[in-house]
Every structure is written in structure tokens, then in C-alpha cells.
Design a protein around this nucleic acid. Structure first.
Lengths: 127, 127
DNA sequence: ATAGATGCAAAGAGTTTGCATAGGT
DNA sequence: ACCTATGCAAACTCTTTGCATCTAT
């Protein structure tokens, strides 16, 4: 039987993802976790992300045209906002709801993804 | 000044995209256009796709986690529906509108993308 | 004739995999 | 000690770029 071990790199990644408050890209996670575990390699980050997703500890956030980002598993439906300037992604907990009616006749809607684009509060503010 | 030339490869790509009736990936476009222009290379496909997008002749359709596909330019805002079974993508011309209110305070919404997932009419129907 | 377009190959960017070694248990 | 996890480097996929050649105008 396989058994998951608790390693410094995994702990560092977990801490970084928990603390972020927004979905992080693999490179961000790698860079941020390196302050805790300097030698951390990208392969390890990808391998652990995969394991953590399978363990339902985190989940991928995939926006159109962008690589996957990861955030702690949310219980409940939510969407995302991407800043056109800094390109960071934020959670949006509101939902327009009732999107089933938009589908063509005979189509059944099971799920939807909504992404807003614009300026985040920091980038909207004058410098 | 630059002037766009009409070439066989561009014409073939245009024809393929027009005839498809659904958004096509660069590889599909390349493969399909090669029956008309055998030596067509991927670099040319990508370069022409870029030009055609800039010329507003076609537009990219980018779904989460999928590479870009291209379809003839639609006039008017629209969204997409992807069938979970056949994976085909369809246009959805309705729009929930008024999504600006969903953003966090201080955030400005400029644009939105909405993708519905479910069953298309053919796949929803019993076989 | 001239300048944009093409095709090949090489270069990038992001992600995955092979393999010897480090390190949890 | 055993066996998973790690780090490096190489492989892979998709897309872009450099460059000599071709070709529409």
C-alpha cells in the first residue's frame, strides 16, 4: 500500500496556497515556497499539485487561455475575476444564477463557468 | 506601407474555417487546408490566424483548459456551450447581462466570458 | 523589382517523465 | 531498511521566430 509522507516541500506549498487568498499559478507557488524550501524544483511542485488535487485538498482554476491555477477547495459555487493589468485572479462569490434558460432548446445545462475581466482595486487606483 | 496579399494558403484556410460550422483548432485547420495546399506548414497557419484575427475576419474561441479555436467573426456579444459528451462547442446568443455588480468593491468589470456545460440536444436525446 | 508570404528548423514557454539520490517512516 | 519524494535534466506539446526563398503585385 502506498502512504503519503509529510515533507517540507509539501508543507511549504500547502502554506503558500492557504495564505494566498487567490488562486496561484504553479510558478507562483514554486517561487513563494522557495523562501521556505530554497531548492524546490518545478517538477516537485507539479507532482504535488496533482496529488493534492486528487486528495481534494486543492482544486484547479482554469481560465480561458491561461494555465491552471490552484486554490484550497471551496465548498460552494463561485467564479473568478482576472485583472487585465496585473493578470492576477480573484474569487467572486456572487453568481448570476438561473443560467439554464440561456441554452438553446433541447440543451441541458449542468454547470457553468463565468469569468469577469477588468481592473482589480489596486490597479484601478491611480498610482 | 504594407498591403495584404491574397495567397493560396490564406484562401484555403478561409474556406475551411467558413465551411466548418464550428470553431476549429489550428491543427484541424492545418490538416484540412492541406488537402488544398499540401505543403502548408503550421507556422503559416499560426501567422495567418493572427492576421485574420487582427483583420476581424475570424475570432478566437477560447474555453477553459482548451487551446484556442477559430470561427468566422460573429457580430454581437455571445457565449459558448460545450457538450460534456460530444465535446462540440455551440454558440449561445443570450447573455445574462448586468454582471458588473458581481465584482468585489473597487473592481471594475470591462468584459466577461461565460461557458455553459451540459448536453446538447443530440446527446440529451435517448439513442 | 520589391516587399510581404511561405516553409523549414530552431527557439520558447509550460508541463511531464526518467533516473539516481535524499529522506520519511 | 524500505520505498516514497525530490531535484535535475531531458522529453513533449503547442506556439512563435529567424532566415533564406518564393511569389503576388
Amino acid at each position: 500500500m502506498s502512504q503519503e509522507r509529510s515533507t517540507r516541500q509539501r508543507a511549504a506549498m500547502r502554506a503558500v496556497i492557504e495564505a494566498a487568498g487567490r488562486p496561484l499559478s504553479p510558478q507562483e507557488i514554486c517561487a513563494m515556497a522557495q523562501s521556505e524550501v530554497p531548492g524546490l524544483g518545478t517538477a516537485t511542485v507539479y507532482r504535488n499539485l496533482k496529488l493534492m488535487v486528487e486528495a481534494r485538498e486543492i482544486e484547479p482554476v482554469v481560465l480561458p487561455g491561461e494555465g491552471a491555477r490552484y486554490e484550497p477547495t471551496h465548498h460552494g459555487h463561485h467564479h473568478h475575476f482576472q485583472c487585465n493589468e496585473c493578470k492576477r485572479v480573484f474569487d467572486v462569490h456572487e453568481c448570476p444564477g438561473d443560467l439554464d434558460r440561456l441554452a438553446p432548446k433541447g440543451f441541458t445545462v449542468e454547470r457553468h463557468e463565468l469569468t469577469l475581466y477588468g481592473r482589480c482595486d489596486e490597479c484601478a487606483a491611480p498610482k
